[in-house]
Structure formats: C-alpha cells, structure tokens
C-alpha cells in the first residue's frame, strides 16, 4: 500500500509528465487558457491513461510478450489509445457539447499525446506490476491535470499583465511554462524523504 502511494505521489509531483518529463506539451500549452477547458482536458486524459493501461498491460503481457512480438508495442498501444480517445469523443459530443467545442482539436490530439503513450510504455519498461501500472497511470493523469490547472491560473494572470510587445503571446507563455517547470524541481527527493528509500 505504501509502495502504491509512493508511485502515485511521485507520478503526480516528482515525475510530472508535463513539467519534469516534458511530455504532452502541445495540449499543455493549447488548452491551458481557460480553467474550465483545462479541467475537462485533464479528466479526459486521466480517463484515457487509466483505460489504456488497463488494456495495454494485459495485451502486452498476455499476447505480445509470449509471442515474442514486443517490438509491436508502440504501434498496438497507439491503436488502443486511439480507441479510447474516440470513445471519449463520442461520449463528450453527446453529453457535454460545450466542453466538446472548447476542447476542439485537442481532444482527438490526445491520441498523439506522448504523455499517454509514455505512461503505457514506461509501465512496461520500468517492470511495474499490473496494479502498480494503474496507479502510475492514474498519477500521471492527475499530474497532467495539476500541471494544466496550475498553468491556467498562471496564464489568466499573464493575460492582464503589461507585457512588452515582443514577448506577448507565445514567448511569455513559454517563459512562464519554464518557470513553473523549474519550480517543480523543488519536489525532487520528497518521496524518499517521506517513505524512505
């Protein structure tokens, strides 16, 4: 139990996919303009990450590995991720059209969100067990959401700032993103401190 909590916390804070591993930067910059769309995107990514892990892990361990087809993992994982993205897209279109519109092109782009593929591949590369993988995916998704929410707050402040013409828009956003990322480095060593090595 302690171990699972450590995996969860470390995936959220220390090995944050966006701010420490620099995966999924595209939706991080694209959808973090508004708080509402950021939280919608975050929940969508959590769903896709957990569901993909639920399927990809048994798929890899049960089918690909015994048949010595491990090299197909990237391709087959993308197929599975695409399936869940499509499912969530159909679901959102019906139930939450406003959120569907706000997410726009970034919703189908979860398919190519490297954080999702990264989570499924890292689970296998790091020799995690099935339960550990699910917690890692859940933590990765929550970490992505946290990063998105934090940054949407930063950006709403940026919008009212008096920024020099040259830095307006993307440059100031990227600088702010790097500062947020640097601040997350302060968490390194936290897990070892709490749970012991």
């Amino acid at each position: 139990m302690k171990e699972l909590l450590a995996i969860l916390l470390s995936a959220i804070i220390i090995d944050n996919f966006v701010l420490s591993k620099f995966m999924g930067i595209c939706p991080f910059l694209g959808v973090s303009k508004k708080f509402e769309s950021a939280i919608g995107m975050g929940i969508a990514v959590i769903f896709v990450m957990v569901c993909s892990t639920l399927v990809t892990y048994p798929f890899y361990m049960g089918i690909l590995l015994p048949l010595k087809l491990g090299y197909l993992s990237n391709m087959s994982f993308i197929l599975i991720i695409a399936l869940f993205v499509q499912l969530i897209e159909i679901f959102l279109k019906k139930t939450m059209p406003a959120l569907y519109k706000a997410l726009g092109v970034y919703l189908p782009l979860i398919t190519t969100n490297c954080a999702v593929l990264g989570v499924t591949l890292l689970n296998i590369n790091n020799n995690l067990t099935f339960v550990q993988s699910i917690f890692n995916a859940l933590g990765g998704g929550i970490g992505f959401t946290v990063a998105l929410l934090l940054f949407s707050g930063v950006r709403s402040r940026l919008e009212t700032c008096d920024i020099p013409e040259t830095f307006k828009g993307v440059p100031s956003t990227l600088i702010a993103a790097s500062i947020v990322s640097v601040s997350f480095m302060g968490f390194s060593g936290l897990i070892e401190g709490i749970f012991g090595k």
């Binding site: 089918i63 087809l69 499912l87 279109k93």
Partner: peptide
C-alpha cells in the same frame, strides 16, 4: 501472426466504436 493480431484488435475496436456511436 502480427497481422492477424492487429486485424483482430482493429475489428474489436471498430465494433466497440460502432456500438458507442449508436448509443451516443
């Protein structure tokens, strides 16, 4: 075998999506 696996996975995914698109 790899082709069969992918065809099978694709078929299942397609069926799931079709069902979802009908329901929603």
């Amino acid at each position: 075998l790899p082709v069969l696996i992918f065809a099978g996975a694709g078929l299942i995914a397609g069926a799931l999506l079709y069902a979802a698109s009908k329901i929603f």
